[in-house]
Simulated assay, not measured.
Amino acid sequence: MAHLAVDSRGYPVIATVERSPQEVNFGSINERRKLALAAFDWCAVCGLPFADELRWQTVFQEGPLPNGVISGEAPVHEVCALYAAQVCPYLFSPNSRLGDEARKGTVRDPVVRFVGFESTSAVTAHESGLQPGTYTLHFEHRGQADEFSYRTPEEIRERFADVLVREKDLPVSDAEGVLVRLFNRLDDEDEGDVVTGAALAAGAAFAKDIFKVQGLGAFEGKQYPVVAGLLLKGTEQEIREFSAGSRDEAYSVIGPWVLERAGSFPVPLQRWRTRGESMVRRPAPRPPEGPGRNVAKNAPCPCGSGRKARRCHPSGISAN
C-alpha cells in the first residue's frame, strides 16, 4: 500500500472512499470510484489490479452459497481483506455499529465471513429498495474457491502473516500505472473523477442505467459515449491520435490501455463493450464498385476472378 496517499493520521486512504486533501471519509463508499474499480478490475482497498488472484467479499449469510453472489461492495485482494479486518472499526469489533445515515445503528455480525471467488462476472446498476430512484453498482461473483471467518482479529493474524510472506508485486503497465496514480491521489479538483471519465470512455458508458448511478449524473451529456465509440470501433491510428492529442492525463493513456488490453478486458468491461457494439454506428461504407457504378459491365470484375463484372459481382463490390 506504499503507493496510497495517507490521511492526517497516517492511515492509507483506501481506494473506494470519499476523499480530499482536507478530509477523508472512511465510512462513505463513492460510487464513481467503484465504477473505475469495476472497469479496470482493481481492488477496493489498495486500488491495484487483481491479475489471477481471487476476488474476496464479505458475505452476510451462512451455509452454501449460490453460484452467483451479488454484493454492493467492490472486491478486494485477500491480503487487503485481512488488513481491513484489523484496522476497520466495523470489521474489528463484534459490537461495532455503522454510523452512516442509511445504515445507522447496524450491528456487525458476531462472525465475519470473507469468501474468495474466481471471477467478477458482471457489474450492474441496481435501484435501492430503501431509496427509490437511487442507483448503486453491484458486483456479481462466481466460482467460490476459498474462505475464512473470524470473531476477533486475533484469529486471523497467522493467516495475515502467511499471506504477507507470499505477497508479490503486481504487474502494472506504464499506461495503467498512470491511471492508478491519478486514481489514488488526494486532489482538490477531481477526487478520482478524471479516472472515472477514463473508465466511461473505455466502455463503461455503454452499461445500462450507468448515468442513473449515484454521483454519475454529472457525467451525462458530456460525450462519453462518443469517445467510448471511438475507443470501441476506431482504428489503432485513430485511438492513438485521440490519446496523443488529449490534454487530460487520464485520456492521454486510456487509448494505449485499451489497445494493450484488447482481447483481455476485465469481464464486466467486456460485457459493456459488447453491449456498445449495437449502440455505436459503424462508419458509412464507401460506394460499391461494379456494373452501374464505375466499372463497365463487360470489364473484368474488380475482385480479380477474371470473369466479367456483370457475371461475377452484378451488385458491385464494397471498397471496404
Rank of each mutant, 00 (worst) to 15 (best):
A309M: 02
A2R: 15
D169T: 06
D162Y: 01
S243T: 06
N320Y: 03
L65D: 00
E154W: 06
I254S: 11
P283G: 06
F211M: 09
F60S: 15
S243F: 00
V112H: 10
G105F: 01
T106D: 14
H77E: 00
G255N: 12
P287V: 02
Q86G: 12
N25K: 05
A161T: 08
A250V: 04
G192L: 00
V115F: 02
E158N: 13
S149E: 12
R240I: 05
F206Y: 03
G116E: 13
A175F: 03
V69A: 08
V295R: 11
P266T: 12
K208S: 05
K34Y: 05
P171R: 11
T136H: 05
A74N: 06
W42C: 02
I239C: 10
R240M: 10
P66C: 07
A15T: 00
P300K: 12
S315L: 14
I14G: 02
G316T: 04
L200T: 08
P75F: 06
E236F: 09
Q237T: 01
G143R: 13
L269M: 08
S128Q: 14
L216W: 07
I29M: 05
A202M: 14
V123T: 11
V112E: 03
V13P: 11
K168Y: 09
G129M: 02
V295P: 13
A309N: 02
D187W: 00
L4G: 05
C312N: 06
S315V: 01
A175M: 01
K222Q: 15
T134R: 15
R281S: 10
Q237S: 13
D109C: 11
L4T: 04
A51P: 12
N67M: 13
A84E: 12
V24F: 04
L137M: 04
T106C: 11
S93L: 09
H141G: 04
G27I: 05
W56A: 06
K308S: 01
A204F: 04
V194G: 10
V178N: 01
A199N: 04
P12M: 14
E154G: 02
E241Q: 15
V165I: 07
R33K: 01
K233G: 05
P171I: 09
R275N: 13
S315F: 06
D7C: 14
A296G: 15
R113E: 08
F40R: 13
A262I: 02
V79A: 11
V180L: 13
G143M: 03
E260A: 10
L200R: 09
E238V: 02
A51H: 10
V123L: 09
A175Q: 09
S252Y: 10
Q61F: 05
F242T: 01
